[in-house]
Write a protein that binds this DNA or RNA. Structure first.
Lengths: 105, 105
DNA sequence: CGGGTACGTACCCACAAGGTTACATTCGCA
DNA sequence: TGCGAATGTAACCTTGTGGGTACGTACCCG
């Protein structure tokens, strides 16, 4: 969880994920699509790999990266502990609106 | 979204949120509960405030901080774009298991 | 077995982040 | 009004992070 959130804090890394969400890609393709040079991308991928957000598969000289969205389940579950809170708050808001309408009749 | 994820990347700040999830608290209380000194906590709170994760209310000299889980909705929505992916994957897994059972009959 | 290709890593530099101490500010109260 | 309490901010230092360049290393192909 810590590693995942840390990995997501950087926008470039999130962009990598968004590319991989559409299709697997090699390190080189990712580097082309990003504003940073290849070595930087390699380091981003290393972080994502260690956070469990991507998988690598070797194809000759190329390394094909694929998304591994299971890791995001952790974040999803963590958010779950707050989801109840904001749902309650929205319910309260709806109730307040309903009371307001009623009062205006 | 960027600001929120960045704010969440630090563990101390997440701990602040976890305290506030249970009850509102003053800056001093939070500092006592954390391993860092008050000025550090103040800066953490500033980040959380600017990310929209907490609200402040002034009570005499004290500032009472309360959770504002609405901001986490952003993260929740962003995760939603990946939820479909991992649900499909889980479905595929379940299907594979079902096929396995069938084959073993 | 060379040569080109696709990556990753080591090294270096600049900057941002996080912590602490010292100081300024605001508020309640005698 | 003067004092203590609660908090935020400024200045400073240390460490971590992100980016680039240079280099090492597999791998295919002729």
């Amino acid at each position: 969880m810590d590693a995942v959130l840390h990995a997501l804090a950087d926008e470039s890394r999130r962009t990598v994920l968004e590319i991989l969400r559409d299709h697997p890609a090699s390190a080189g393709e990712l580097a082309e699509a990003l504003p940073i040079a290849r070595p930087g991308v390699s380091r981003h991928l290393r972080v994502l790999r260690e956070a469990g957000l991507v998988d690598v598969r070797q194809d000759a000289q190329r390394r094909i990266y694929t998304l591994r969205p299971e890791a995001l389940v952790e974040v999803d579950e963590w958010l779950g502990t707050y989801r109840l809170l904001w749902e309650n708050r929205l319910d309260a808001l709806h109730a307040a609106i309903a009371r307001g309408k009623k009062a205006r009749r």
